[in-house]
Design a protein around this nucleic acid. Structure first.
Lengths: 79, 79
DNA sequence: GCATAATATATGCTATTACATATAATTTAC
DNA sequence: GTAAATTATATGTAATAGCATATATTATGC
């Protein structure tokens, strides 16, 4: 689970956004963003979807068997 | 958000699993599975990740720009 | 070093989820 | 049609997320 949260945090940093800015956009207090990013809160699915979208990301459900192919695709995009 | 939940429900049906079976595997009561599947509860991220894994699925965070490519890939897999 | 910026921690309250259990309603199979 | 299977709804409790606000701590920039 905290793989997704770590990725969200990584993306926030890459976009040079502060926790307080993301909090403001999402309606959550900066302190709660901090808790979520540190794995100290288990956020609701809707909260994670909202945060992801604010960072131009989407949560997708995929068959586990396709994970390698999808990861390869994402890795290629990063280059 | 309920796109993911709908997909989970669809996957459960495709695997011919009952709500009570999924509930038992996940430690959640069948009644709560029902609520989640109907969008009447906003489950925690960890709950959704657990349910997904029990159905051989994974939640993945992807750049929105890559959604079409990933969806195309997933569609290909279904054939 | 110091001021400022940013994040982490604390406290408190409300609403909701998670979970238990029971039962009502619907669907399925014969 | 009816019984059995399955899902939906109800009630209750405990734990926690969401949210507000404040402040402590750490990081950054000069």
């Amino acid at each position: 689970m905290h793989g997704i949260i770590d990725q969200l945090r990584h993306t926030r940093l890459a976009k040079k956004l502060k926790q307080s800015e993301l909090g403001h956009k999402s309606g959550l207090p900066q302190s709660h963003i901090s808790k979520i990013e540190q794995g100290k809160a288990d956020p609701r699915l809707s909260t994670v979807v909202d945060l992801a979208r604010l960072l131009d990301q989407e949560l997708v459900l995929v068959p586990r068997s396709m994970l390698p192919a999808i990861r390869a695709m994402l890795a290629g995009e990063e280059l």
